[in-house]
Design a protein around this nucleic acid. Structure first.
Length: 310
RNA sequence: GCCGAGAUAGCUCAGUGGUAGAGCGCGGCCCUGAAAAGGCCGGCGUGGGGGGUCCGAUUCCCUCUCUCGGCA
């Protein structure tokens, strides 16, 4: 039975602030796993509080991968993530360990499970040119070009979505191939492995209360100083989009008081959580675990464990 | 107690004799090399209670309740 030989991979996803990390550590011990972070911000060093990374104490209990792998000055993206994550999976399989992916970055998750179409990395000069055209002629102009070059891609992309229009044009200009064709060619771990995907969720008001509370906690832990330190150096544009950077920068520049910065961070985090839920909701592979306030991380991880082995 | 202002969406408020909008908030969605990013869609409403005028009232009139100012 080849089915039996498939290697097991476990995913734990869900919106920010739901308590994935604590559950993951307990679960990892039970199933002989190591944790692979699936978080686009936690990859950055020196962004500990802002990314709510696992603490040194937690990392001592269970090994965490893909935390602190790049400096905040470096750009990071899905392709780098995928490369790193696949390498770690291989290592873990050799050790007989189960990879336990934990995080809320939906695209990163899907790139691991379903794959990424073959390498067409970004091209700085093509992008610069397209961005200039975006400024002078607007996204509608670029969209029209895309309509001619790759109608299928254009159909999927909204005329205002400049970022995706540019990427589609970039791929074509660089390879002469349509992104809509290339995108059909993807293969991820889902094909060769036994996937077990769990999602944590809470009723919306309770989730939002948790998100707000976690932002308060981040302030207590020293978010302001952490961001102040980060802003002393040049941040890559991918690191700079972490929620909290921009909001606090406005406060540092005297645009509004500190409370307003906090309010904005809380609001943007709630919006983010909502978008994450939209992303994950449509993935039918996810087995949802509804947690209520009373559930401890241990209870939640037990529920997952039961689903894994019963 | 008297005088004045107000009571409309979750919040702050606009407007109109033909059953209502704005901003923020909130909800839904899209997503393949920036993804904690970027983009799209949606008004979510017993217009404070009751009565009157009118073909028709959220809009005009009366009254009650409440809120906020001012005077006592």
């Amino acid at each position: 039975m080849p089915e039996e030989k498939k290697k097991k991979i476990v995913f734990l996803v869900g919106p920010t602030g739901i308590g994935k990390s604590a559950v993951a550590i307990i679960l990892a011990k039970k199933i002989n796993a190591e944790i692979v972070s699936c978080d686009s911000i936690a990859v950055y060093r020196k962004m500990d509080i802002i990314a709510s990374k696992a603490t040194p104490g937690q990392r001592k209990k269970i090994k965490h991968h893909l935390l602190d792998v790049v400096s905040p000055a470096q750009e990071y993206n899905v392709a780098k993530y995928r490369k790193g994550a696949l390498a770690i999976c291989d290592k873990l399989f050799l050790k007989g360990k189960v990879p336990l992916f934990v995080g809320g970055s939906g695209l990163y998750y899907s790139i691991i499970i379903d794959g990424l179409f073959p390498h067409v990395p970004q091209d700085k000069s093509i992008r610069a040119k397209l961005n200039r055209q975006l400024e002078t002629k607007g996204s509608k102009y670029l969209y029209k070009r895309l309509t001619k070059i790759d109608p299928a891609a254009a159909k999927k992309i909204h005329p205002n979505d400049a970022r995706r229009i540019i990427r589609a044009l970039e791929v074509y200009l660089k390879t002469g191939k349509q992104i809509s064709m290339l995108q059909k060619n993807r293969s991820g771990l889902g094909k060769e492995h036994e996937l077990n995907v769990f999602g944590l969720n809470l009723k919306r008001p309770a989730l939002y209360r948790r998100v707000d509370a976690r932002v308060n906690q981040m302030f207590r832990l020293g978010l302001i100083n952490e961001v102040k330190r980060l802003l002393k150096h040049k941040l890559s544009k991918t690191a700079a989009c972490a929620i909290g950077i921009n909001e606090l920068n406005g406060y540092f520049n005297g645009l509004y008081p500190q409370d307003e910065a906090k309010r904005l961070i809380q609001r943007n985090s709630r919006h983010y959580a909502k978008r994450q839920l939209t992303w994950f909701r449509k993935d039918k592979r996810i087995q949802w675990i509804d947690i209520n306030k009373a559930d401890s991380p241990a209870q939640v991880s037990l529920k997952i464990w039961k689903k894994l082995f019963l």
